[in-house]
Amino acid sequence: MTTRAPSAGAQTPDVVQGPQGVPTVPGAVPVGGRPDPRPMSRRGEILYFALRTKKVIIGLTIIAVFLVLALIGPIIRPGDPDALIGPLGASPSADWWFGTTSFGQDIFAQFVYSLGSTFLVGALGGGIAAIIGMTVGFVAGYRGGWIDEVLNMITNVVLVIPTLALLLVAAAYLSARGVVVEALFIGFTSWPWAARAIRAQTFSLRSREFVNLARMSGVKGLRIVFGEIAPNMSSYLFLTFILLFGGAILIAATLDFIGLGPTSGSSLGLMMYDAVAWSALQLGLWWWFIPPGVAITAIVGALYITNVGLDEVFNPKLRNT
């Protein structure tokens, strides 16, 4: 699963280095530190750009739409989504907005419930991966030495584990799995790239003098990491989380689709799995698999586009203006 990691400059401050004639473009930050004529703080500047970058607006809008749908869907269409209440295999109509399955289930109801579970997997799986990745990345990057070597080894091992094979084995042992288990699995296997990236950033920030200054102020290691280094990388961490979130959704959908998903509950991937299992393609029941497919593509795509857009916002060098 290749993801476009946030650019390394995501939170490199565009601060001009000392006055030795380093040729930088003045204007973003005053050269030589003259009093800043612009009224905006950095946070204000980021918000200004974020709300004006097309990519961010488009991406966030799409996600918002699906999120709202996931939240209010169960209110619009209350009841059990798997209930057999409609005509068999009916195409979309005024009564059944997304049509029905071959068994007469309301696809729209299934859809909005699945959206919720998809977001849950994304948040939980992505969240777990983010926590592990950050912990490993920060510790390895800050401490260096043999701790770094050990953590690198662990990262490499997890990276090369064939997750599919692992999942097959797990599936054989866990006959009943829920969405949470799936999220845990994804969380525990998709963190290596994040750890690597965070380690690299931490490494580079660690060599900055303000870390030394904190050490000389008697501040302990952990507080330095969370007090000085992590805030400096906050945009990078944010972008990493977005990518992990999107990645988790995509992985979950893939696993569901090939039948290694949860045994209970529903998700967009499971809908597609069902559709294929019950020959929706051959029977021409396009309304069964197109909505979930489009939704997955749209959500994950929107997350990645937002990531790219925010990357431009955080890293002024990528801006086109």
Binding site: P13, V16, R42, F210, N212, L213, S217
Partner: peptide, 23 residues
């Protein structure tokens, strides 16, 4: 100690009094 690069010695996301807050 005081180091060579003043802009590297200060954490750019905090105000200048942050270094005093630390001590």
């Amino acid at each position: 100690g005081v180091f060579q690069d003043p802009f590297s010695s200060f954490n750019p996301i905090f105000k200048a009094d942050h270094v005093f807050g630390l001590i």
